[in-house]
Amino acid sequence: MTRFLRHRLFWPVAILVALLALNLVFTDNFFRVQMKDGHLYGSLIDIVRFGAPLILVSLGMTLVIATSGIDLSVGSVVAIAGALACLRISDLDDQNSIGGVLAAVGIALALSVALGVWNGLLVAGIGIQPIIATLILMVAGRGLAQLITDGQITTVNSSPYKLIGGGYWLTLPFSIIIVAVVLALTAFLTRRLALGLLIESVGGNAEASRLSGISARGVLITVYTFCALCAGIAGLMISSNVSSADGNNAGLWIELDAILAVVIGGTSLAGGRFSLGGTVLGALIIQTLTTTIYSIGVPPETTLLFKALVVTIVCLLQSPAFREKVFHRRRRPQSPSPVTEEKVRVSA
């Protein structure tokens, strides 16, 4: 039992279950999932659907943090990808053209990849600290997104584009299917191939990895590119769900939620080992927490404080040192038994 309690995913799972149970108290039929018009509906489905962009961004952030880095530019990449895709679609004569929508999506993702390579080159090629390198794109990227939209909210009316974030396929929201595919590919590449070991090696000791023949620069560029790609897909989801692009507010502060999700999932900010499953749990906890805040009627002006409080509690419960101090008492020294005292007396 103690071994089970010490598992790094125990407390995230326990907190998620507690939040879901709390919602059940305030919301009738919270766990009910029903079929309407061939689509699955329910509060649980909505949590995963609305949390899909955060899960994607968090997956990319996990690999970056595993290399002892950080990416603060994901929110700007989210805004840029959504803005560029919506701009291209709004210029189409037929916004329902599948070919035109695919071209717009491809251009947006290509730019996201280019931005990720840019971050990787700044970090691995020039040697700029990750927090500074990505902070540059965080600031400049938000301005670029507003330039693309000309400071206005760009709206589209495209059924194929709506599918990405707001449509359904095989009874499930299409965004959930995208997340499942990306998660499966990420797990395969990092757990079935050597890429995961290379990432952990670079995060543990980049210099030792270089001396052992590992191309640390290549690994760093790869993870920053992947992180930007995940952010680009998330940007398409967000803009698709509302059929518009807002260069100023789209993806705002999502980088902070992604970092929190990674930390809640048990990945150390110091780099090294990482947990994709833990990251998904962390993202679901944050999205469930947002749903819980609205369910129990927390005043909007205290929402961020309430959210910060819960996240702090989760992080403290995950800390072995904190649990040792709070939940474990010091063992009292056992008094020697009469038999032991007799043996000591005889030997003396």
Rank of each mutant, 00 (worst) to 15 (best):
R192N: 11
M138W: 07
V223P: 04
V262G: 02
G106Q: 03
I80K: 03
I233F: 07
R331L: 11
N157W: 02
G127L: 05
N157V: 09
I233E: 02
F50S: 12
A184D: 01
G165K: 03
P53I: 13
V33E: 10
W169P: 00
T290F: 10
G165M: 01
V280I: 14
K325D: 08
L281H: 07
L137A: 01
C315T: 14
L87Y: 11
G82T: 11
L309D: 05
I264E: 00
G235L: 01
V346E: 10
L24F: 01
N119M: 05
L115G: 00
T134Q: 07
Y294A: 15
G165A: 02
I221D: 05
F327A: 06
R3C: 00
P320G: 11
G143M: 07
T67R: 09
D257K: 13
I126D: 02
F188Y: 13
F306G: 09
E200G: 08
A321D: 13
T303W: 12
E342I: 13
A133G: 06
G278T: 11
I164P: 04
A245R: 04
G282E: 06
L92S: 13
I153P: 02
I293R: 08
G235S: 01
I148L: 07
L317A: 13
L281F: 12
R191A: 10
S244H: 05
K325C: 05
G282K: 05
L111T: 06
A85H: 05
G235C: 05
S97I: 15
P173L: 06
